[in-house]
């Protein structure tokens, strides 16, 4: 038991990222409002960012900037995950942008942002056209 606890203690970043992930998934799953779903998605993505950053961490590491010391002599944070996350954040922002743009159009076309109401309207559209 104490082993598990210690493990959790040293890997607490796992706990946080999984908790965030579940919160995000829950929002997407359970919230009917389209914007809330997008927010859930953002939380989910944030969990991933956090995870990446945490795996690049090194105890007492400094910024990976090469001044005059040799890289072997000082501990520094792994820069690659940070770089990757820059890209991923850009991607996340673009997705959010597209999603919000779509929501605006959906609100105009359907007059609502509730998924259940949209589905009802879709159903009646189909029966109308059939």
């Amino acid at each position: 038991m104490s082993d598990v606890l210690r493990h959790l203690g040293t890997h607490y970043h796992y706990v946080i990222y999984i908790a965030l992930m579940l919160i995000g998934l829950f929002a997407v799953l359970a919230k009917g409002n389209l914007i809330k779903k997008v927010i859930g998605l953002n939380v989910l993505q944030t969990a991933v960012f956090l995870f990446y950053i945490s795996i690049g961490r090194k105890a007492d590491g400094t910024a990976p900037v090469l001044w005059d010391q040799k890289p072997e002599t000082i501990p520094y944070e792994n820069p690659v995950p940070h770089v990757l996350m820059l890209t991923a954040i850009v991607v996340g922002v673009s997705i959010t942008a597209v999603a919000l743009a779509l929501i605006i159009r959906i609100k105009r076309a359907y007059g609502t942002m509730e998924e259940s109401e949209i589905l009802v309207l879709d159903e009646s559209d189909q029966q109308g056209s059939a």
Binding site: V28, L119, E123
Partner: peptide
């Protein structure tokens, strides 16, 4: 029922989970 009616997003996400 409309054949193969669209699934709500939540259903797909639930299946994913």
């Amino acid at each position: 029922t409309t054949p193969g009616a669209a699934w709500p997003i939540s259903t797909t996400v639930l299946y994913t989970a």
